[in-house]
Nucleic acid binder design. Sequence first.
DNA 1: CGACCTCTTGACTACGTAGTCAGTCGGTGC
DNA 2: GCACCGACTGACTACGTAGTCAAGAGGTCG
Lengths: 360, 360
Amino acid sequence: MPERARRGAHRPPAMVDVAQHAGVSQKTVSRVVNGEPNVSPAVRERVLAAIDELGFRPNSAARALVTARSRVIGFVSTGSALYGPSQMAVGVEQAARAAGYTVVVVHTRSGDPGEVGAALDELAGRGVDGIVVSEPADSLRPLGHAPAGVPVLALEHRPDEPDDWLLVGADVRSGARAAVEHLLELGHETVWHVAGPEGWGTTRDRRLGWADALAAAGRPLPDVLRGDWSPASGFEAGSALADVPGLTAVFVANDEMAVGVVRALETCGLTVPHDVSVVGFDDVATAAYQHVPLTTVRQDFAEITSQGMALLFATIEGRPVPERRAAVPLQLVVRESTAPPHPARAAAPGGRGGEGDPTT
Amino acid sequence: MPERARRGAHRPPAMVDVAQHAGVSQKTVSRVVNGEPNVSPAVRERVLAAIDELGFRPNSAARALVTARSRVIGFVSTGSALYGPSQMAVGVEQAARAAGYTVVVVHTRSGDPGEVGAALDELAGRGVDGIVVSEPADSLRPLGHAPAGVPVLALEHRPDEPDDWLLVGADVRSGARAAVEHLLELGHETVWHVAGPEGWGTTRDRRLGWADALAAAGRPLPDVLRGDWSPASGFEAGSALADVPGLTAVFVANDEMAVGVVRALETCGLTVPHDVSVVGFDDVATAAYQHVPLTTVRQDFAEITSQGMALLFATIEGRPVPERRAAVPLQLVVRESTAPPHPARAAAPGGRGGEGDPTT
DNA sequence: CGACCTCTTGACTACGTAGTCAGTCGGTGC
DNA sequence: GCACCGACTGACTACGTAGTCAAGAGGTCG
């Protein structure tokens, strides 16, 4: 039999092998594998037995070739192992696998548009059925030119921009605003802001929410300090802030930088929250266990990814999608890093207040 | 021309389309795309122009089908967004893409062997060229039954077990031992251990390194407390430890739990490192910026993934592999959470020492 | 008893790429 | 001038799956 002779060395068994083993046609095996109706129980049984015996696994390349559907989702992320993106990655993968999809990951560490383009080409060539962009930095915007017909889900909330993407994300701007309002309600005159790196939508949203709250209260808008999400950059920003006269409250764009800010303030002789209140963003696992448990804004990443992926799969599979975008609310978690301002300090024009007054 | 008519609605352009456009054969297009020699510059030029004009992307499903090589790496992880696994995921993806491979991610949150088996089948069906297991928990052991001929890289160091896997990882046991030796050298009589969850190789290694150091010094081996890598579990363990009479030093299996431990000790009125020294593991970004900067053991994840992936690609591509396993050294980073034991405390048989002695 | 229908099964083919092998063309050595 | 060789190109086919369509088996209804 030349047919089998040609099936050389050690290629894994294919449907034809199963078919021959079970005494049916390849097409019938295909029917059984795909759970199609109209296969007699007896035949189905025989085929399943043959599959089991030969250890047959459907070849997804062949399947993708013929169906032009890969059951693969492309996940594009900026690649640093930051808290948010990591959480998203896990949530996306879980949702995908539950729906029978596989996730291909592409990281684009540099914001180089060329690299993003290459990543896109990669995904297009793989014939992904959908693309997920996690925490989309502006450098990922070229994804707008995604392969035609491939739906794109961006895990961000962006109410203003009429986009053809699916958009599901935390309502970061409102969350940031709530954080700043909390500080204002405590009596702080104004609130400084340590922002994330430029070029991220979420950086903008946090800054805008902060500005919203200050504007609504008619307060002055201090200069923005900029970090890169890392504790080290937070420390740097905190060191600068320690020199600001009358500083009593800081809203930091993520918890990791907030830890750095707190540490810097402490290093400069200031106490949190006695001298300065600090609010973070994300609610990382360790936030509650800091020396001064961190007041922060919690993002529900599980909810975001689950809602977003549901939307994406509905779109891919042609099911009706009521609303192409959704905002997931954030939750302000008040802990111990915020308190009313120290009266002496708010008035003091000089830096480094509070040194001479260790008692409450 | 029925040929073109059949190419229906909006399938993306294939090589035949490019070939027709350039007036060459499909095979020649294939040669150009794959950079094969023996194509005249003029033809190459024409083909490239046609590719560009039509926006042609090679279909990787078809390519994988015919070559039986997918240029895909399967990445299997336990799925929580823990620090180590997240770092590994990023490193693996970067190395893979640099080598022209794509990464498919499979998370197995539950340790359910059935789920692991399904994940394996998934990867086998995708025809992955290699499999990477990140921080392999015992539940991933069934990966030993990986599809025949598919090399597996485990990102762990496991000198004892003669395995057919590639093994590259930090020498966790030695690192743990160094951490404990550091504490003993400071003068601590013994060191308690807060371990990770059972079923992880790395949990075992940390515990063994700890035991090694104590045994070598002839010290008693305290009971092991067990956490789940989370700060909350560390807090719980720390609360229990606070009641231990004469406690002066703790080695915690990761930084996140260490933060919880420190917080619990503080909550119980103990001071770090005055009353109790604490050492963590991993050197997460915030470790250096804690209220008491954390002494810890740094893992060089970038180095681990880079070495490991190099090994994997060499194996996949049939290049000679000098050594199938490698240990990456760890680095003890001494900060301020460790100090010599407080004399009064080491002697004290009662719990909660140090309360009456806030000075020094 | 015949027309008709449903259920089950298989033959044939497309999908897009790369491997094999044969053929053409121009140049080189003797 | 002829055999030969290398560079270049294309026709044909395999890869493993699912879609299309037809055929056979068995039942139902009038």
